[in-house]
């Protein structure tokens, strides 16, 4: 899923996922909170891990300082 758009901003689904990760969660918990399909959350997490926006510990994902910066500069959280 293209959560990070070509101009570097977050897509709405990506923003929802990062917002959910303000407290650490498993993939299933993120899917439940955002009402996104599990496969979309898994694909997004791969993208965010690659960008350094999230980090993984066991089955739990958490927002990194870079992820928080991206979230703050985007849509809902930035307003």
């Amino acid at each position: 899923m293209a959560c990070i758009q070509p101009d570097g901003t977050l897509a709405p689904s990506g923003e929802a996922i990062l917002l959910a990760l303000q407290t650490p969660k498993t993939l299933g918990e993120v899917a439940q909170e955002t009402d996104l399909d599990l496969f979309m959350v898994r694909a997004a997490m791969r993208e965010f891990l690659g960008a350094g926006y999230v980090e993984k510990e066991g089955f739990t994902y958490r927002l990194t300082p870079q992820g928080l910066t991206a979230l703050e500069g985007s849509g809902e959280a930035g307003r």
């Binding site: 899923m1 293209a2 496969f39 979309m40 898994r42 694909a43 791969r46 993208e47």
Partner: peptide, 11 residues
């Protein structure tokens, strides 16, 4: 819906 892999659908 963006870049997807088969493994995204596991479980």
């Amino acid at each position: 819906w963006g870049h997807l892999a088969l493994e995204d659908f596991k479980d």
